[in-house]
């Protein structure tokens, strides 16, 4: 007959196995944390987009360094993020003033509103301002604004 009761040998074996499992699980979870570690982000989100007079009324132009479209409509200047809200590709200008994502065909109107999916969120409008000392326009990529906001000069 087998003896199922706890004796010294069985107890020590259990303790050893338990310790091993604990150490492995603890180490593995720390490895995952190590790999998910995020170094501090030093890249600036504030980028120059040129002189105001490079954007005549009625124009929409792509500024590569800032990955934004800067437009000038009847009311004023505005900046639309070129990064598609679906999976991060850069949208292109469509024929009728809107934007099209070349990766998965999401379509947006000139204000960045979704016309057809798969994107579900509108393109972001970004904070745009004029630095009077340098005479330069700047956008802050980390500062989305309401799509109705215009920079009036």
């Amino acid at each position: 007959m087998q003896d199922h009761s706890m004796n010294r040998r069985r107890f020590l074996t259990l303790v050893a196995q338990g310790s091993l499992v604990t150490v492995v699980v603890a180490a593995a979870s720390q490895v995952v944390r190590f790999l998910a570690f995020q170094p501090p982000n030093s890249a600036s989100t504030i980028l120059p987009v040129g002189q105001p007079d490079t954007y005549p009324r009625g124009s929409v132009a792509y500024v590569a360094e800032a990955r934004v479209y800067v437009g000038h409509d009847g009311e004023g200047l505005y900046a639309v993020d070129a990064v598609c809200t679906h999976l991060g590709c850069l949208v292109e200008q469509g024929e009728e003033g809107g934007f099209i994502c070349p990766c998965h065909d999401s379509r947006f109107d000139s204000e960045g509103r979704v016309l057809t999916g798969p994107a579900t969120q509108p393109l972001r409008h970004l904070y745009l301002w004029l630095d009077p000392e340098q005479g330069q326009l700047f956008v802050d990529r980390s500062e989305p604004v309401e799509p109705t906001i215009r920079l009036i000069l």
């Binding site: 792509y62 590569a64 990955r67 070129a82 590709c89 850069l90 070349p102």
Partner: peptide, 9 residues
């Protein structure tokens, strides 16, 4: 180049 527009990714 993460800033360049690509036609057919």
């Amino acid at each position: 180049d993460p800033t360049a527009l690509v036609d057919k990714p």
